[in-house]
Design a protein around this nucleic acid. Structure first.
Lengths: 166, 166
DNA sequence: GGAATATGGTTGAATCTTCAATGGTTAACC
DNA sequence: GGTTAACCATTGAAGATTCAACCATATTCC
């Protein structure tokens, strides 16, 4: 309500770095998506299948999955339904917690993920990993790990208070 | 068609860095989006308005805009229509090239962008810039600039041959 | 034990994005 | 000059995502 104080604008070099990040991350996403289209999935669907394939028994609870891939529960529900139609996953209700549902990778699904992984890893190399020296890529990873860590602390007190002024 | 050669899988540390990137970039997008929701726009809409606000005369051709923000022309058309309904932009047909259309920021639109920018820059600082030392952030920017550059060369011969096997 | 609250997941509608097809304009070619 | 090919932007339908409301089960607290 009060007169807004002038924000701390980015310096020119911060601005440059931020723009580079924004544009590159967008372009990267487009490329990775496009390469996966050969298997009829986008990156976010692949991530989901990929997490499943790494989990013991190829099974994971919906909410765990949602947290892992950073997608809303609703989105995971819808995506799971689509993947189920294709015969790549099935749903099973949890034994311990009957509210829960586990998503299970089918044999056909596993076969597909493997095929996708081949395409995907080459894609990630070509568009990201191999475009810079290994040390630089490692540094990129470390910087992004900091970003991720910062997100956590910021949004711990989040699900409840989404209405700053009400 | 031939037996696929085993792909060059990522090493463990490459894998770690890639995962960090993927998760952090997703989480970051969510946070930046959420902070902008207070003004009823997402990051991609803001980007569009922002580009417009920086352009001389607050005007830019649709296709230029699409390239700048890395979105499909169709998406920009639809988004522009929504922004137009809100009174933040108007369309004007080009004088030189009558195929073209220019999107023009209205005074009301400019006022909004300024308000959004205040929120946005603080958001970018909190979630990204200020979570690491300046030198590290600069390095992040440089790495991403390489990614961006690599995209360009990769997709130069792209619009035509999108069907590898047909 | 039982009410109140929190959690897990789904649903359908609204919204946004993608995709393929289209109309209008300009450039290239012969 | 006129045909052909490219480009710009839009359109509408199909597909994906978000949002709010909902049901079922678990947990908390008295």
């Amino acid at each position: 309500m009060a007169q807004e104080p002038e924000p701390r604008w980015l310096t020119e070099s911060e601005q440059d770095a931020w723009r580079s990040y924004l544009r590159a991350s967008r372009a990267l996403e487009v490329s990775l998506d496009r390469d996966l289209q050969s298997h009829g999935v986008g990156l976010s669907e692949y991530e989901l299948l990929s997490m499943l394939s790494e989990a013991p028994g190829g099974r994971l609870r919906m909410s765990t999955l949602a947290d892992l891939v950073i997608q809303s529960r609703s989105r995971v529900t819808h995506t799971a339904s689509r993947l189920e139609k294709r015969g790549w996953v099935t749903r099973e209700s949890c034994l311990e917690d009957r509210r829960g549902v586990e998503l299970v990778l089918t044999p056909a699904g596993r076969q597909e993920v493997v095929a996708m992984a081949h395409v995907h890893v080459e894609s990630v190399r070509r568009h990201l990993v191999d475009v810079m020296p290994p040390a630089q890529f490692a540094a990129l990873g470390e910087a992004m790990a900091l970003v991720r860590a910062a997100q956590d602390v910021t949004s711990v007190a989040e699900p409840a208070d989404l209405a700053p002024g009400s």
